[in-house]
């Protein structure tokens, strides 16, 4: 756990200026994309996300988290996410068109990366040994929010990787004493439910077994189970 926070401090100390640039670029691109979603801007956002994922894979995990065991696993994980975004940019799968269905949750998720450092400060941490907006979980929660805001057609491979990352976040809260990750885990459960539901809703016109409403109930049940798991982990972490 000491190594975990030491590497974070090392990363924040060395890259805070780059992080500011990355955050400002993200804010600018998001605002422009919401206001005037042109094809160039959509491509620009994808390129930004490719860069962001490469940053996490190379700069965060390969360079600054070198001390941690199996840092290469997570580096490969984020590298593959970057590859999926490259594929998406070439094929144009994610349309970045808005549906206005889940705006509230989407905006909330996109604000989460800024709540991360606030949560760290509230629990008594100080710079540089604290969470920042350009860290894996913050990037994951921002991406989920962005995809939810522009959810007309999303890349489910990315959603599944982010879903997996959220599950890891639940474990991280317990193993690495990083309760900030509850933000990602708790916020992403309803988002992931919506992604799955909407993706598979397209097939609902087809007659399948069991009926669509039961599948939906199963999905809700699964999310409730994850929610309960999350609460138990939170209670265990608080008891510590």
């Amino acid at each position: 756990m000491e190594i975990f926070w030491r590497t974070i401090a090392y990363y924040n100390n060395s890259t805070w200026m780059f992080q500011v640039v990355i955050v400002l670029t993200g804010i600018l691109l998001t605002i422009l994309l919401i206001r005037k979603p042109t094809q160039q801007l959509k491509l620009g956002m994808k390129i930004y996300l490719i860069g962001l994922n490469i940053w996490i894979a190379v700069v965060y995990y390969s360079i600054y988290c070198r001390e941690r065991d199996f840092n290469n696993v997570l580096s490969v994980f984020w590298g593959i996410m970057a590859l999926i975004w490259i594929g998406d940019a070439i094929k144009g799968h994610t349309t970045f068109n808005r549906t206005h269905k889940h705006d509230f949750l989407a905006y909330l998720l996109m604000l989460m990366p800024f709540l991360y450092p606030v949560a760290s400060l509230i629990r008594g941490l100080s710079f540089p040994e604290m969470t920042s907006p350009v860290m894996p979980c913050s990037v994951a929660v921002f991406t989920i929010g962005l995809l939810l805001l522009f959810s007309e057609r999303v890349n489910m491979f990315i959603v599944l990787f982010l879903c997996h990352w959220s599950i890891i976040a639940i474990s991280k809260t317990y193993f690495f004493d990083i309760p900030e990750d509850f933000l990602l885990a708790s916020a992403s459960v309803p988002a992931l439910y919506l992604f799955f539901k909407e993706y598979f809703v397209r097939d609902l016109h087809k007659d399948t077994k069991p009926k669509a409403k039961y599948i939906n109930l199963l999905l809700i049940l699964l999310c409730v189970i994850i929610g309960i798991l999350l609460t138990i982990t939170l209670l265990m972490a608080l008891r510590k």
């Binding site: 598979f200 087809k206 077994k209 069991p210 669509a212 199963l218 999905l219 699964l222």
Partner: peptide
């Protein structure tokens, strides 16, 4: 030609 099992159900 009976309905297939829902892919999401299979996935889960």
């Amino acid at each position: 030609s009976a309905p297939r099992i829902d892919p999401l159900f299979v996935l889960l």
